[in-house]
Computed example of a mutant assay.
Amino acid sequence: MKILLAEDDRDLATRLSRALNREAFAVDWAQDGETALFLARTGSYDCVILDLGLPKIDGLAVLRQWREDGLNVPVLILTARYAWADKSAGFAAGADDYLTKPFLGQELIVRLRALIRRANGQKAGCVRCGPLTYDPISGAFTLGSETLRLTAFEARILTRLVQFPEAVVERDKLLDSIYEFEADVPNNSFEVLIGRLRRKIGHQMIETVRGQGYRLTAGIK
């Protein structure tokens, strides 16, 4: 899934891009309104995250132009403007959802998936590795016919692994996947999380490749 992120705050855009990448989203970044207009007109996106306070062209003007052009991609406004008048103006311009700063990263992910799910009529390509299935729209994992109950950290690690089935994923990249914005988890908790995942999906499905990282396999030997 591909996201257009229109945000002029470089630090926030970097953190958002990393968090979205961990959730299997590809991200194009527009730092101003002119770039956002151009990218949306020339590219294909599943959803747009739009800041209202963009330089060169204001976010609301960008959104109005997209809708006048007939661009129907779902748009989630992400802004520090929290007054109802600002929200009303955003929806009137054609926004599909509105989230104010500061925000929870997981809430943003849930809202994005909901917007994309509605736009796609529930259609999405699931990723499979043996008995394990991952739905990138809902973010749900199933093992056979059973939906897995995972913590946020466990889900982030498994999401990264399932993107590269039967391939080795470096430990540092997996460790990075459990960070969300400024939040972190102690390094020594990583092996605990891997152990929990193995108990939930089967020890044989997550292989340790010494000196390299971990591999998600179909579990069939």
Rank of each mutant, 00 (worst) to 15 (best):
P102F: 07
E166Q: 15
R22W: 09
T133C: 13
T217F: 06
A167V: 01
G202A: 10
C47R: 03
G90W: 05
F164I: 00
V62A: 10
D8G: 14
A24D: 07
D8N: 15
I49D: 00
F25V: 01
S177H: 04
Y134M: 08
P165Y: 11
M205W: 09
P136H: 09
L99K: 08
A124V: 09
D176S: 13
G59C: 03
R171W: 04
D28F: 05
E7L: 07
S17F: 00
A80V: 08
R64Q: 15
E23A: 15
R81W: 12
R128A: 15
E7M: 08
A152R: 13
I206Y: 12
T42P: 00
A89Y: 03
G195P: 00
Q212H: 13
T100G: 06
L71G: 02
E207G: 05
A124T: 10
R111I: 10
A85G: 10
Q212E: 14
L52T: 04
L12K: 01
A89S: 15
L60W: 00
E182A: 14
L54Y: 02
R67A: 11
A218N: 12
G125R: 14
R111S: 11
L175H: 13
K200V: 03
R160N: 11
L78E: 03
R156Y: 10
G43K: 08
L158A: 09
K200R: 15
F25A: 06
Q212V: 06
S177M: 04
G202P: 11
Y179N: 07
E154V: 04
S44Y: 06
G202C: 09
A26Q: 11
A124S: 12
I178M: 14
R41Q: 11
R22C: 11
G43I: 06
L4S: 05
L174E: 00
C47G: 10
T142M: 05
L20Q: 04
Y179Q: 08
V209W: 01
R156L: 13
G121F: 09
T147V: 09
I201N: 08
L108D: 04
R128S: 15
D28K: 10
S17D: 05
C126A: 12
R215S: 08
R64L: 02
E207P: 01
V168D: 12
E191R: 13
T208V: 12
A95C: 07
K101Y: 04
G139Q: 02
T100E: 07
L193T: 11
D135F: 05
K200T: 05
A85I: 13
A36P: 02
R41I: 02
T79V: 07
L52M: 10
L54D: 01
F153D: 05
D32W: 00
G121Q: 06
L108C: 07
A30K: 09
F181N: 09
Y45L: 06
L132F: 04
G90I: 09
R215E: 07
D97Q: 04
R67S: 11
G53T: 08
A155H: 08
S138V: 03
V127E: 08
G53I: 02
F153S: 14
V168T: 15
N188K: 13
S189P: 00
A19W: 06
